[in-house]
Design a protein around this nucleic acid. Structure first.
Lengths: 217, 217
DNA sequence: TTATATACAATCACAACTGTATGTAAATCA
DNA sequence: TGATTTACATACAGTTGTGATTGTATATAA
């Protein structure tokens, strides 16, 4: 009824996003009504329409809330990582993403929505296009890192950096998808760490004679 | 207007499924109306409701039309394959699925619908559950084949059959997903064969001294 | 202190989709 | 050759969601 202060307004906006995330996950994006979002947030449709132009805007707000910070962290792990060993940087990168998924309910919900509760048509097709760009950039980054590994003779010789990078991207995409499907844990959830280590280990060149230590921990 | 003969009726049913596939892909399942399906099939909603109880029934008919034959073929390649080499059987299995995807427009559309144009809530949640079962069985089959490979000393010793199987399932899931996303071909479409060969080659044990030939072609 | 913009709530008109009920003409059966 | 289904088309009723409009009380700026 009464007008709120700026910070209260920001909290309302935040509550709407959180509510939308829950309702999106439960009912799917298209079946979710603005009223359901409003109810879940404890406001009326008027409030939702005040903060967001329409359902599409709410959807992209939900996405951005987890995707933007995540992208930053992923780029950091891959590019400006703490480790000299490029293959270990890949491993840390994969670990960082799955850790974020495993450790944060908001990330889980959002990924679940994006993967299983959204139809990428019309206004939502944009998201697919952007996702494609993200994948292209990821592929480029991974290729660079694998090339670095190849120069340092750390990459298995039979494996080209391009193929290795594509394979890792495929691995990541499949891993996330199956992790989301696997509520029981029997498929992949219990073994994410092992799977990542095996994936990276599989492309590490066998140690040369009495050579340099392979950065295992 | 006039009543059709049985075969004409079957053709109508088929036309409805084909029309639904197209409209589902263009508009997404939830935004597709029965009238759109009917129009695309050149009939009225009455005809669609005659052949199918509701939109959900149409959806599952679209799915079954490609999923059922595909599952048979995949099981065949994996289990009762022509090759003795278990790793090559895995390669043939992966190739069979991607070939079906690359070579058949109906398979492409259906996979695209299932991956990007459907929200798995309420009546459609069933599909996710079934998909999980399919993945469990696939994992079991793959594990069996990799165990066979391990017994024959064909599997890289550092890799456990269970992890190899899970990794291959992840690879397949990611490959299909990225293939569908990659309309341009720059990500994976142009290199599916290479990627599959590299995936399988990566888990093959290095040839022993002057030992048995490793089934490369 | 007043004017205005803000942050919502409440109401309304409209369109769209669904499921069902009814109509109908031809195919099939007895 | 009638009777009965079948395979649809057409018409109708009911619900639901949307966007827009209007209302309103308060924070904030001048």
């Amino acid at each position: 009824m009464a007008r709120r202060t700026k910070e209260e307004s920001a909290k309302t906006r935040c509550a709407i996003i959180a509510a939308a995330r829950e309702v999106f996950q439960r009912n799917g994006v298209s079946r979710t009504t603005m009223e359901q979002i409003a109810d879940a947030a404890g406001v009326t449709r008027g409030a939702v329409y005040w903060h967001f132009a329409d359902k599409t805007a709410v959807f992209y707000a939900v996405r951005d809330q987890v995707a933007l910070p995540l992208m930053d962290r992923m780029n950091f792990e891959l590019l400006s990582g703490k480790t000299a060993d490029p293959l270990q940087r890949i491993e840390l990168f994969l670990g960082a993403l799955t850790d974020a998924l495993v450790g944060c309910a908001e990330v889980q919900s959002t990924f679940d929505i994006m993967t299983f509760k959204c139809e990428y048509v019309d206004e939502f097709r944009r998201e697919l296009v952007e996702s494609r760009h993200v994948h292209m950039e990821l592929l480029a980054s991974l290729t660079r890192v694998y090339k670095e590994a190849a120069r340092a003779k750390l990459l298995r010789p039979a494996m080209s950096p391009e193929i290795a990078a594509t394979d890792t991207m495929i691995f990541l995409s499949g891993l996330v998808r199956l992790w989301l499907m696997d509520k029981s844990g029997k498929l992949v959830r219990k073994r994410v760490g092992t799977l990542i280590r095996a994936h990276v280990a599989g492309r590490r060149a066998p140690p040369v004679l009495g050579g340099v230590a392979a950065g295992r921990r």
